[in-house]
Design a protein around this nucleic acid. Structure first.
Lengths: 225, 225
DNA sequence: AAAAAAATGTATCAATTGTTACAAATAGTA
DNA sequence: TACTATTTGTAACAATTGATACATTTTTTT
């Protein structure tokens, strides 16, 4: 029997208690798979035939370049599910190669069994729909952000979003280089615009602290008035 | 009673025959709404309270930059559903403004009723999961596309994707303005780059037909070699 | 505390794209 | 066909960003 403590931490199983879960899991097939560091869990292009949930450890999603170089796309840690947005849909294949970053334990259940569970339990269905929707929403927000054209607007957007409604200053957790990557611009370009915005007294930057001097103008910037 | 012919063409209702469908639809509430060209169907930020399926016509999903610029994200045509990925999830709001591109008829059903249907019918559930997944997959591809920086690369990418492996020429279905919106650039800029690429004998454009002259170079462009 | 590494500020010049404007070509319609 | 609206081609100039380089500051390591 599976250790349900890890599983219920996963968003998909939230709000379902152990008794209910064990009743559900009795009716379907599932496996617990163990991988060691650097093991390949799935290859890019492989069909996704199972729901995977990482119970322990973390994996890395990688793309292998034409010249054999490896580009890391993202890390996924327990207790997150894997590639839920690719379980169904027209192209249900792994978009990346999944590699174990350390010792990894994975809960695996065939799609059809999972579908059965979704039918048996409303909470599970709602959870899963929420999970997959949130993923799409995340992508959509990313898309919105990328469609902002000028660096200045991106900065305003980023700062105001971080600041929320209440605060005058925010603490940056990233280096300029990381921010620049996030914005999809070069580091010197970002620094230049930050510096301009300081000269215009929109913000003050002191080390990693950004203080908002003129919230109105920042807002107008976003709205491009 | 609704004309089921349009509805069953929608991926969500695929494989469900008229008898079955009418039995299902009897148990829930739904509406048919009609819009004219340029009507706003939903504003970005509006809560998604209903499942929408386009029965007739087509709509455009747009981000309105505050300076009045419009970035078209995509066109959705009958019989596709609308914003399915935003029915659930933490932020169930329209990510884009939805505008009618012509005379549009839309089928609308409250979320709770729809959830009820998902429980009643496995095929429907599977269809819906497929739909929402495809959506996430689409967004993911879109994100990749938007992260391409130069117009030249975007064009190469677009043309090669349209062309697939076999053909030497493709037929554009969009005006330059629509393409430019899709790319998130201005129309003259797009035209300029297209013209340059013609001069460099990468492509030939005759009216709406684009002929690929140098596939290798186009490929290299994408891969940034 | 000293040395090394990383991050930041800034400058210059090149490349790309935006803005605006207008003529030419094409498509749509009476 | 003739007229109109839409689409396309192109040009000149402005604005933004990229690329590169290097000094300075800050952080991390020894």
């Amino acid at each position: 029997m599976i250790d349900y403590i890890s599983l219920k931490r996963c968003p998909v199983f939230q709000g379902i208690d152990e008794k209910e879960a064990s009743l559900l899991l009795e009716q379907v097939h599932y496996q617990i798979k163990v991988f060691k560091k650097h093991d390949i869990i799935a290859l890019a292009g492989d069909q996704v035939k199972n729901l995977y949930i990482i119970l322990k450890g973390s994996v890395s999603g990688e793309i292998h370049d034409y010249s054999g170089n490896t580009v890391k796309i993202e890390d996924i840690e327990a207790p997150r599910p894997l590639a839920t947005a690719f379980l169904f849909g027209s192209e249900n294949r792994f978009p990346v190669t999944v590699v174990a970053r350390n010792d990894v334990t994975i809960f695996s259940m065939p799609i059809d069994d999972f579908l059965k569970l979704l039918h048996l339990n409303t909470r599970l269905l709602k959870n899963f729909l929420n999970s997959i929707s949130s993923r799409a929403q995340f992508l959509s927000r990313k898309l919105n952000f990328l469609s902002i054209k000028t660096i200045r607007e991106k900065i305003a957007n980023y700062i105001l979003q971080k600041a929320g409604d209440r605060f005058h200053s925010i603490e940056l957790k990233n280096t300029q280089q990381e921010l620049a990557d996030l914005f999809g611009v070069t580091r010197p370009s970002l620094a230049r615009v930050l510096s301009e915005m300081q000269k215009e007294k929109l913000i003050i930057i002191d080390k990693r602290t950004v203080t908002i001097l003129n919230k109105e103008k920042l807002n107008k910037l976003i709205r491009n008035i």
